[in-house]
């Protein structure tokens, strides 16, 4: 160190932090993932609250009882909420990507996944085609691996507006 400088030294210490975590499947994840391999979407049901849940869970947050049975969800359902991610997300797929929470037939809650097969070149128009109330179907990939991306949603018809549900 030599001399007197009025300005303090400025800079950054850069560090990459990596932590490893083992997330246990627990009581229901494995059954759900195995179901996917067989092209089945399995939901859990709580007989006390009569709620059928997707994603499946071991217990009901409302009744605070264990979920006590498995129910196979329908392969069609209704969009409850949707968006198109246009930029700014460094996920596993490059944007633009459409995602929707869909309440599958026979299930009380909605589960999120990608909406495929949409023309995203006009975002406004694409959003209108996947607005809440729109019916969609489930499509599985050719070789399901037991992962949430084994399936995705597709509009029921080419003309999404014709497939609108009654809404609520």
């Amino acid at each position: 160190m030599s001399g007197n400088t009025a300005e303090p030294a400025r800079g950054y210490l850069t560090e990459q932090v990596t932590l490893r975590y083992d997330y246990a499947f627990g009581e229901v994840v494995g059954t759900f993932m195995d179901g996917l391999k067989n092209r089945k979407i399995l939901a859990t049901r709580c007989s006390k609250s009569a709620m059928v849940y997707l994603p499946p869970r071991a217990f009901c947050e409302r009744s605070f009882e264990k979920c006590d049975s498995w129910v196979e969800a329908g392969h069609e359902g209704v969009i409850e909420a949707s968006t198109i991610v246009v930029r700014g997300f460094e996920g596993s797929r490059p944007p633009p990507i459409a995602v929707a929470y869909v309440r599958l037939d026979g299930v009380d809650s909605a589960i999120v996944n990608y909406v495929e097969g949409l023309d995203l070149s006009d975002v406004e128009a694409a959003m209108r085609r996947i607005c809440p109330g729109t019916r969609v179907s489930v499509e599985f990939i050719d070789e399901p691996q037991g992962s949430i991306t084994d399936f995705h949603y597709r509009l029921l018809t080419d003309d999404g507006s014709a497939a609108r549900a009654g809404g609520r």
Binding site: A24, E27, A58, F59, F64
Partner: peptide, 15 residues
């Protein structure tokens, strides 16, 4: 404890 995920562990204990 591999048999339960964290949520399930806590649910059982809270219940």
């Amino acid at each position: 404890l591999d048999a339960l995920r964290l949520e399930e562990l806590v649910y059982r204990t809270a219940r």
